[in-house]
């Protein structure tokens, strides 16, 4: 697989898996307004992933369709961040997962608007607009929950402590390939680390939440297909119908 295809798939997988997780809330959210909001954000994420799979398929020479990339790849072939595949848990955990990603995604897609790979730049323009809303939504909820009641603060802090170990992966060295960064196709994620940290600290400063200490042991592996066990179950559910009837055009 070419570095470009691998990169596009990683971006698409992040958006799909996060959107899929959010869609699991549909009908079960704490308030009706959040049923609408979470479904809306899920739609944006999955919609962006569909566009990204489209350009990945094209970059691959149209040997597979976008749907085949989604429904007929194994877990070890998925390239998404470990963070986005983590289970929903309670509303605090879902919001913290979303916030930690959104704070990263908004920086990434802002820069990808200037990617030298024109189809990616075009998708990034749409995605960036949507991510601004997502970040506003998730950061506002972090503030409300992190400065709400004793219970909401403790639940949110627990989610932060639990999910923090997946954050380093967003800025990892070695992905994407250096040639993509040099050519201006991809963004070097290492350059986003400090700005992400400042953004997260700025939101946490409005709350009683604290950032886990620097000794937190970080986990990585998603970009090379070494996932947590959560992804397999998600894919089993997502792919079951498509794989049971490969002859049907949906």
């Amino acid at each position: 697989m070419s570095p470009l295809v691998a990169y596009l798939l990683s971006l698409a997988d992040d958006r799909l898996i996060l959107g899929h997780r959010l869609s699991e809330w549909c009908g079960h959210a704490p308030i009706l307004e959040e049923d609408i909001a979470l479904a809306n954000i899920a739609l944006d994420c999955i919609g962006q992933s569909a566009l990204l799979y489209g350009i990945a398929a094209e970059a691959e020479g149209n040997v597979r369709t976008a749907d085949q990339l989604v429904y007929f790849r194994e877990g070890v072939e998925y390239r998404n961040l470990l963070l986005v595949e983590q289970t929903n848990g309670d509303f605090a955990r879902t919001i913290v997962r979303q916030f930690l990603y959104d704070a990263f995604g908004i920086l990434l897609f802002e820069r990808l608007q200037r990617s030298t790979h024109a189809p990616l730049a075009a998708v990034a323009q749409k995605a960036y607009k949507e991510l601004k809303y997502h970040f506003r939504h998730s950061s506002h909820w972090v503030v409300r929950l992190g400065d709400g009641t004793e219970e909401s603060i403790s639940r949110t802090q627990r989610a932060v402590n639990d999910l923090w170990r997946y954050t380093d992966e967003m800025f990892g060295a070695g992905f994407p390939e250096a040639e993509l960064i040099t050519s201006g196709t991809a963004v070097d994620p290492q350059l986003l680390r400090q700005e992400w940290r400042t953004s997260v600290e700025g939101i946490f400063a409005q709350t009683s939440l604290t950032i886990p200490d620097a000794n937190t042991v970080m986990l990585t592996g998603g970009r090379t297909g070494r996932h947590t066990e959560n992804l397999g179950h998600l894919l089993a559910e997502m792919q079951i119908v498509a794989r049971s009837y490969p002859e049907i055009a949906w």
Binding site: C26, G27, L43, W250
Partner: peptide, 23 residues
Amino acid sequence: WITRAPSLRRKLALLAKVQDEAG
């Protein structure tokens, strides 16, 4: 069935439909 919808197009359409119902 949202999480099992068998294509991207169907997944988006079903999710949008259920969101309409919330609306």
